[in-house]
Amino acid sequence: MDLYLGIDVGSVSTNLVLLDPRGEPYTTPIYLRTQGRPIAVVQEGLSMLAEQLSSRDRVCGVGTTGSARYLAGVLVGADIIKNEITAHAVAALRVVPDVRTVLEIGGQDSKIIIIRDGIVVDFAMNTVCAAGTGSFLDQQAFRLNIPIEKFGELALQAENPVRIAGRCTVFAESDMIHKQQLGHPLPDIIAGLCEALVRNYLNNVGKGKEILPPVVFQGGVAANKGMRAAFEKALGTEIIVPPYFNVMGAYGAALLARDWALRKGQPTKFRGFQVAELKFQTRSFECKGCPNNCEVIEIKEGDHVLARWGDRCGRWSTSNIPTEELIAKSIS
C-alpha cells in the first residue's frame, strides 16, 4: 500500500505516524522519549515501524516537524519540512474540521492556534517562561513521587483546589512546597497547580486571542485529565481531546506529506528504513566569516556532508563541499 510518514522530533518526545492513502493511521502511532538523542530515537522509531510493514507497503512521502525538523528531515530524506504550528493546525483540522481554537501544550513549549473557516488566522507561543509545559509537570510528578499518568486523575479528586502562584516554575514549585507544609491534601495541591498553569497559559500565550469553540486540546499534556478539567472550568466550554492527541504534530506532518505527494506526483526523497542502520555524526563550529559568528551545525554520514545549517548568510547551508575546504577558500 502507498503510505505517508510523519515524524515529529520534539524536545521531550519523538513521534512517528504512518498514514494510508485515505489519510488514516495505518499502524499504531509510535511515541518515544527523545532524551536528548534525536538521531538514535528517530532510527529506533523507524525500525519499530519497519517491523510492522509487509513487503508490498511502500512510503511515498515523508514530512518532518518539531524542533529537530531539519535534522530529522536530512536524516530520513523528507519531502516536506514544516514548523510545528502549521503541522498541529493541519492535524486538528483533519480530526475536527470546524475547529476554531487549538490549545497545544508540549514538552517545552505551549501554543495557541486560532482557526477561522478552516485556515489559521493567528497563533502565539510561550515567550518568557516554560511554566505549564510538560517538562514542569513531569518534574513535579517526580518530586511528589506520583507516576505522571496518575497525576491528572489525582487532581480530579480535589475538593478545594488551592491557589498556587503560576508565573514561573521556580515560584510555582516553592509555593507548592509551602502549601504542602501547611498540610493541604495532595489532590487539592495538584488541582491547584493545574489551575495555575491554565491561568498562566491563558494570560500569557492566549492573551488578546478570541477563544471560540470547538476547542481542541492536544500535545502530551492533554493526557492530563486535571489540565483538561482546569481548561473546561476556565473557558466554560467543552474541551475536545482527539484520539491521537500526543502525536498530532507527526500526524499533521504525514498529512502534509500526503498532500505534497498527491499534488506534485514526484517520487519521494525518503532514504528507506535502512536509515536506521546507518552511522551519523554531528558537530558544530563557529563560523568566523563575519561578526555574526553563527554556530553552524553539520551532519555527516561517513565522510559525506549531508547538510549544514545555522548560518544566516547561506554560505554553509547551500554547499556540501567538505568544511575544511570551504573554510580555506570562503573567508572573504
Binding site: 516536506i80 514548523n83 505534497w260 499534488r263
Partner: peptide, 30 residues
Amino acid sequence: AGIVTRLEAFVDLMAARRERKLKGEAGKWI
C-alpha cells in the same frame, strides 16, 4: 529556533490567506 518557527508559521498563515482570497477556497498549506 523560536524565531524561525514563528516566522515560518506566519508565512504559512499569510500564504493560506492569500490563496483563500484568490480562489475563495480553503488555502493549501504549501
